[in-house]
């Protein structure tokens, strides 16, 4: 479903991704872990074109991202993204946040968009907050709205960029629960996260990144129980 081939990314003199290769299959849940500055967020952001690619290639559902003939906006409709800082639109009510892209990008009818948004908000447990503005929500609620907003485009893949890092510990759970449900429904997910418990429980595969490269990957059991690489062991000993 996603093929990443020898992906390089430079910010000026800064070589952030140094040849990442990976293949993500349909319905797979992949957690990307690693120390800060390892390039894991950049890797994720490359996958929906928020960062341009310096060299290499990413192919998503037969769309080649760095091909000038590819309409990036069409790819993005198939790839949902959830940000660390939610990035909800402050001037729109919760329901309008969720309806915006279906109305303006997919151009479905208002009734249809509204019904869909309602269903999605109910799914993330926020049906009662439909008419609130984001400024009146807690962080966990905001992130759940952000998930609903991304889902409203019926994406085939969901990307999560440290979705719980900006949240208080006691409300991390409510966001993870929503993500778990999504995983069990068969959504293809790539999750950059510091939540090792979530990775262990939900991931089909865990990727450990460091210094712009994938150092090690495997099933959660492999990575957490018997990491092969020294750097993986070092990282896990610090965070577990």
């Amino acid at each position: 479903m996603i093929f990443v081939n020898d992906l390089h990314k430079k910010f000026g003199p800064n070589h952030v991704l140094k040849g990442v290769n990976c293949h993500i299959r349909e319905q797979e849940v992949v957690c990307v872990i690693g120390p800060s500055g390892s390039g894991k967020s950049t890797f994720l952001r490359c996958m929906n074109g928020l960062e341009s690619i310096t060299s290499g290639s990413i192919v998503i559902n037969k769309h080649t991202l760095n091909d000038s003939k590819t309409n990036i906006n069409l790819v993005r409709q198939e790839v949902g993204m959830v940000f660390q800082h939610f990035n909800l639109f402050p001037h729109l009510r919760v329901i309008d946040n969720v309806m915006l892209a279906p109305l303006r990008v997919s151009r479905i009818s208002k009734e249809e968009a509204h019904a869909k948004a309602e269903t999605l908000l109910a799914k993330v447990g926020l049906a009662q907050k439909m008419d609130a503005y984001p400024g009146n929500l807690s962080g966990g609620q905001m992130q759940r709205v952000a998930i609903a907003r991304a889902l409203a485009m019926d994406p085939k893949i969901m990307l999560f960029d440290e979705p719980t890092s900006a949240l208080d510990p006691e409300i991390v759970g409510e966001v993870l629960t929503v993500m778990k449900d999504l995983a069990s429904e068969g959504m293809t997910m790539v999750v950059v996260t510091h939540e090792m418990g979530f990775a262990r429980e939900v991931a089909d595969r865990v990727i450990f990144m460091d210094q712009g490269l994938i150092v090690e990957e495997g099933s959660p059991e492999q990575i957490f129980a018997s990491p092969q690489h020294e750097r993986t062991q070092g990282f896990l000993s610090k965070v577990l």
């Binding site: 993005r76 991304a150 485009m153």
Partner: peptide, 23 residues
């Protein structure tokens, strides 16, 4: 306006003009 809002619009597949107008 925080850059993250524009990025969220991009990630939803919105065109630059739509991002300015709606976001």
């Amino acid at each position: 306006v925080p850059y993250g809002l524009r990025e969220a619009g991009k990630a939803l597949g919105m065109k630059p003009a739509q991002i300015v107008r709606y976001i």
